[in-house]
């Protein structure tokens, strides 16, 4: 059985507010990938992460772990799920109990999942994991959370995920609170976890540039729905959805070409048309039919789907499963070898 986790038409509504609308996604254990979910605040990316982690129950659709619904997992399967699927959150402060030394978050999984036979072996495991993410164990162990910086606390969480050798890591904005250099280090350690251990990674971010650097695939989300999804190169170099184009143009570049601060200030988000494309209010190429219904995903290439009526001549994505347009590690490897 190679399907690790499958979301089927997963959606989440909080009363009248739709936080996530109909996302289908398959994460395959046989071809692990790094999939970035990119979007602004309120795009639904964190809701998607929490649904995949089993922290939120979808109000429509379902999430399957090895073909079993997350809602009805037995105790043994739930424990396996908890080990296989690990989370790294944005604000690493809330995951620490302020009354415990930070060692606690590292020794607990070692004990709970019986990762070491002796205290000395546990110590070696923990120190190795800390060094792997660029921390000096002697500066970390024995400290309380408030004595460490946000960057240190976050790297401890990556080290913790590393200890468990999970099959999937869902990292929700893991580097938005650290500076550029640390960001590269933390993302580099995530990438090597994927490469060396074949771990699937879902990387939730608002930063398309880091997504481009470490991911194989990108899901661009806008106001609860997927705007565009597919292989990273295509999306960054030839974006199709108008929102993806806006995102890419908004990234400040290290360049002597200065066009980022424009005299004509960038349009502020408009209100969404009820029932139509949620991007219509700020879309420079909106058409009358965009107001009529939410655009489905059109498959514009083998490795691309885009929810925009400008591509309606392309076939709709079969079963709407984004997993079918995502590239896995092995395919990516063989493609590189062929190219």
């Amino acid at each position: 059985m190679s399907v690790l986790l499958r979301a089927e038409h997963a959606g989440k509504a909080y009363g009248p507010l739709t936080a996530l609308r109909d996302v289908s996604l398959t994460l395959d254990q046989a071809r692990p990938s790094i999939t970035a979910v990119v979007g602004e605040s309120g795009s639904g990316k964190t809701t998607l992460a929490r649904i995949l982690l089993g922290l939120e129950v979808p109000t429509t659709g379902r999430v399957l772990y090895h073909d079993a619904d997350l809602r009805t997992l037995g105790a043994a399967a739930r424990l396996a799920f908890r080990r296989d699927v690990q989370a790294i959150f944005q604000d690493p402060y809330e995951v620490y109990n302020p009354f415990y030394r930070v060692d606690h978050v590292l020794t607990t999984p070692v004990r709970k999942f019986r990762l070491a036979k002796s205290a000395a072996e546990a110590r070696v495991l923990i120190e190795t994991a800390l060094r792997a993410v660029g921390l000096r164990p002697e500066e970390i162990l024995g400290r309380f959370p408030h004595q460490l910086s946000g960057g240190q606390r976050q790297r401890i969480m990556v080290a913790r995920a590393l200890l468990l050798r999970p099959k999937l890591i869902v990292a929700d904005e893991p580097v938005s609170m650290v500076d550029a250099s640390l960001r590269a280090t933390i993302l580099g350690s995530l990438r090597s976890l994927h490469e060396e251990l074949g771990i699937n990674i879902v990387y939730i971010t608002h930063d398309l540039a880091t997504a481009y650097q470490i991911s194989h695939n990108i899901l661009v989300m806008y106001r609860a729905g997927v705007a565009e999804a597919g292989a990273v190169d295509g999306i960054v170099t030839r974006p199709e959805h108008p929102y993806t184009r806006l995102l890419i143009a908004s990234i400040p570049r290290v360049s002597t070409e200065r066009n980022w601060v424009s005299e004509a200030e960038t349009a502020v988000a408009g209100s969404a048309a009820a029932g139509g494309c949620s991007f219509m209010g700020r879309c420079p190429v909106a058409m009358s039919e965009c107001a009529e219904a939410v655009p489905p995903l059109f498959r514009t290439a083998a490795d691309r789907a885009v929810a925009c009526y400008h591509y309606r001549t392309a076939p709709e994505l079969a079963a709407a499963d984004l997993g079918t347009v995502l590239t896995g590690m092995h395919e990516a490897g063989s493609r590189a070898a062929a190219g």
Partner: peptide
């Protein structure tokens, strides 16, 4: 500064920024 950074630290800071032009250059200091 962007074209000819003189200090090695400046160069490291610039290269720690993820580029949208080419992949695989992401490196921390």
């Amino acid at each position: 500064m962007v074209t000819v950074p003189r200090h090695p630290y400046t160069r490291a800071l610039i290269s720690s920024l993820p580029s949208l032009e080419h992949r695989g250059g992401l490196q921390g200091i």
